[in-house]
Design a protein around this nucleic acid. Structure first.
Length: 341
DNA sequence: CACTATAG
DNA sequence: CTATAGTGG
C-alpha cells in the first residue's frame, strides 16, 4: 500500500531513454504484486504451468526486464526481509483482506460476473514462498542483481540510492522518499494503457520521476516534515492516519506548526505514539552487504527453467533473450560501463 | 504485463 | 502504422 501522497506534488514525466545507462533499485514485492494482479485471464485466473505453479510473475519479469535491458536500464531487485514489528498488524490485515477477496472472486465467478471476478481476483494476489523462490531463480539466470533487505525493501532501496549505488528507486509507493531516496521512478513496471478500477476509462501510463530535492523545495518542507505529514495521512505503520486528515489538510498543519509535536501541543491533533514511526522512517534497518555487479544471462538456464519446468513457449523466451543481448551490446557501446556493468 | 494475429 | 481481441502458462 504505502503512504497516499498523490496530488500533493507533480511528477516529471520521463521516457525510458532518459533512464538509459542507469541502475534502478526496484522494490521486488511491489513489482511482483503488480504482475500477479495484472497478468490474469478474463476469469481472474493467473497463468499457471501444468502442475499448477503460478507463472504470471515469471512472465512479467521476463518481458519487462527484457524491455528495460533493451533500453539500457539495469534493474536491481530488492526483496523484503522480516516485516518490522510496527507493521505486524497491517500484514495480518492484508492477508485477511486478500482471503476475503478470494472468496468474492469465487462467488462472482459462480454467478458469471466476469468483471467483478477479475477485480476480486486482482485483490486476492498473494506472494507465496514458491512464487518468491521462482522469481529469485529467474532473476539469477537472467544475471540481474538481487538484494536481500534486512527489513523493508523500500528502505534498503532508498539507502542504496542515497549511497549512489543505484540512480533511483523504482516503486509505485512514495515511501522511499520518506526513507530518504533522492529519486523515485513510478510506473517502471507498468506502462501502456490501463483500465481504471471500477470505471470504464483507460489511461496511458508513463514513467514518472520524482526528485526528492525538487519535491521538498516545491512544498517548502524538509524530509522530516514530509514524514510528519505522511504520519498524519497514514502509513503502513499507522494505517488510516489521523481521522479526518488527508494530504491537503496534513500539509497545511505541517506548514503552520512545523511538525507533529507542535501540532499536538497546540491541540490541532490528538496525541498519539508517532515517535517510533518517525524514528523508523529516519533510521530503518539497512545493510551494506549487497552485490550489484551485472552478469551475462545464463540463457540455457532461463530456457531450461521457463520452458522445461514452467511450460513457457521456447520461441517467445528466446526472443526475449535476444532483446536482452541487443540491449547489452548497445549498452557496451553507448554508456560508460561503470553505469551498470 | 507482453506477445501474436488480425482488421482497419 | 495503430487499435483491438485473444492468448500466454
Amino acid at each position: 500500500m504505502g503512504v497516499q501522497l498523490s496530488g500533493l506534488f507533480e511528477p516529471k514525466v520521463v521516457e525510458f531513454k532518459e533512464l538509459a545507462g542507469k541502475r534502478i533499485a526496484i522494490d521486488a514485492y511491489n513489482a511482483l504484486y503488480q504482475f500477479l494482479s495484472i497478468i490474469r485471464q478474463p476469469t481472474g485466473e493467473p497463468l499457471m504451468d501444468r502442475d499448477g505453479n503460478v507463472t504470471s510473475h515469471l512472465s512479467g519479469l521476463l518481458y519487462r526486464n527484457a524491455n528495460l535491458l533493451e533500453y539500457g536500464v539495469l534493474p536491481v531487485y530488492v526483496f523484503d526481509g522480516a516485516p518490522p514489528e510496527l507493521k505486524k498488524g497491517v500484514v495480518e490485515g492484508r492477508v485477511d483482506t486478500r482471503l476475503k477477496a478470494e472468496e468474492r472472486w469465487k462467488e462472482a465467478l459462480a454467478r458469471g460476473d466476469l468483471e467483478e471476478a477479475r477485480i476480486q481476483a486482482q485483490a486476492s494476489a498473494r506472494l507465496s514462498r514458491g512464487i518468491l523462490e521462482d522469481a529469485k531463480r529467474l532473476l539469477g539466470y537472467m544475471g540481474i542483481p538481487v538484494v536481500q533487505a534486512p527489513s523493508e525493501g523500500e528502505a534498503q532501496a532508498a539507502y542504496m540510492a542515497g549511497e549512489k549505488a543505484v540512480w533511483a528507486v523504482g516503486s509505485q509507493d512514495f515511501d522511499s522518499l520518506l526513507f530518504g531516496a533522492p529519486r523515485l521512478v513510478r510506473n517502471i513496471t507498468i506502462t501502456g494503457k490501463r483500465k481504471l478500477p471500477r470505471k470504464n476509462i483507460y489511461v496511458n501510463i508513463v514513467p514518472e520521476l520524482f526528485d526528492s530535492e525538487t519535491v521538498l523545495s516545491d512544498l517548502g518542507i524538509t524530509r522530516e516534515q514530509l514524514i510528519d505529514l505522511s504520519i498524519l495521512v497514514g502509513t503502513d505503520y499507522n494505517p488510516g492516519g489521523v481521522e479526518g486528515i488527508g494530504p491537503k489538510k496534513a500539509y497545511k498543519i505541517i506548514r503552520e506548526t512545523g511538525g507533529i509535536d507542535v501540532a499536538v501541543e497546540k491541540g490541532l491533533v490528538r496525541g498519539f505514539d508517532y515517535e517510533p514511526i518517525k524514528a523508523f522512517f529516519m533510521n530503518p534497518p539497512v545493510t551494506d552487504d549487497y552485490e550489484l555487479s551485472w552478469k551475462a544471462p545464463d540463457e540455457e538456464g532461463v530456457v531450461d527453467f521457463l520452458c522445461g519446468e514452467r511450460d513457457f513457449t521456447e520461441s517467445r523466451v528466446r526472443k526475449a533473450l535476444e532483446k536482452i543481448r541487443a540491449g547489452i551490446e548497445k549498452g557496451r557501446s553507448q554508456f560508460s560501463l561503470d553505469g551498470w556493468l
